[in-house]
């Protein structure tokens, strides 16, 4: 277990050294979306039986926390190709799976911090929400999924360029199409089906329901999410064991 702790500790030290830059990024981007969409479309617009701001906030929460959790991929990339710190992990007498868990734990930590910022925002905007056990578990599930996705992405690519391509061609469309900013029901029929390939579609719905109503509306979505996490975990281990 010392491998997990060593890697997590290292990431925290690096995180601390650029904490305010990071924090600012987690605040600015949701605020931007809030102004652009939220106040643009307006408080009075009703969507899915609630006002739009209330609908949007949990979407912003999934988006920002996803960006933070998945964002470990760029950091791993830099430490792997540029500073070569990743070699320190590979040469250490630890099981390779510990690298996956250490990094994922870090992604989860960053995700929780950015989620906390949105929660403060929700409080300020006077949106009704609940922070229940259910919400925490679902958020954890969401963050683990995207940390592990980020981890595997970072190990599959061969350079920064590949990483950039994955971000623009997969992550960005996913963030816009998974029901973060408006309900999937409002999309054209074909897209409605297509978006179900994105893990974010499932976790967004679960998070929104837990956050706004403290309820679990779809067991199927929960099971699909758990299945996705499990697959990504196995895939991550497979990849990290082959890496050189």
């Amino acid at each position: 277990m010392h491998g997990i702790w060593g890697i997590y500790f290292r990431e925290l030290l690096i995180f601390k050294s650029k904490f305010f830059k990071n924090l600012l990024a987690s605040v600015i981007s949701p605020l931007l979306f809030l102004f652009a969409f939220g106040f643009g479309i307006g408080k009075d617009t009703q969507i899915d039986g609630t006002n739009y701001i209330a609908f949007l906030l949990p979407g912003l929460l999934t988006m920002t926390s996803l960006n933070q959790a998945y964002g470990i991929s760029s950091e791993i990339n830099i430490s792997r190709f540029y500073f070569k710190i990743f070699d320190e992990y590979l040469i250490a007498p630890i099981g390779r799976w510990q690298i996956l868990l250490g990094e994922s734990l870090y992604g989860v930590t960053k995700g929780f911090i950015s989620a906390a910022i949105i929660i403060i925002l929700a409080y300020i905007l006077d949106v009704k929400f609940s922070i229940s056990f259910l919400f925490v578990v679902i958020l954890l599930l969401h963050l683990l999924i995207f940390s592990m996705l980020g981890f595997s992405a970072a190990l599959i690519v061969r350079n920064h360029g590949d990483q950039f391509a994955i971000n623009s061609f997969i992550i960005t469309p996913m963030v816009f199409l998974s029901g973060t900013f408006y309900p999937i029901d409002m999309m054209p029929a074909i897209i409605k089906y297509v978006v179900h390939i994105f893990p974010l579609t499932y976790t967004t719905k679960l998070i929104r329901d837990a956050f706004l109503y403290n309820r679990l509306t779809s067991i199927t979505y929960l099971l699909v999410s758990i299945f996705i996490l499990f697959s990504l975990f196995l895939f991550g281990i497979f990849i990290v064991r082959r890496i050189e």
């Binding site: 010392h2 060593g6 890697i7 500790f9 290292r10 030290l13 320190e88 992990y89």
Partner: peptide, 12 residues
């Protein structure tokens, strides 16, 4: 110091 500390943890 912290560079060395991380290494110490990784090596158990």
């Amino acid at each position: 110091h912290n560079n060395l500390l991380i290494h110490a943890i990784l090596y158990g």
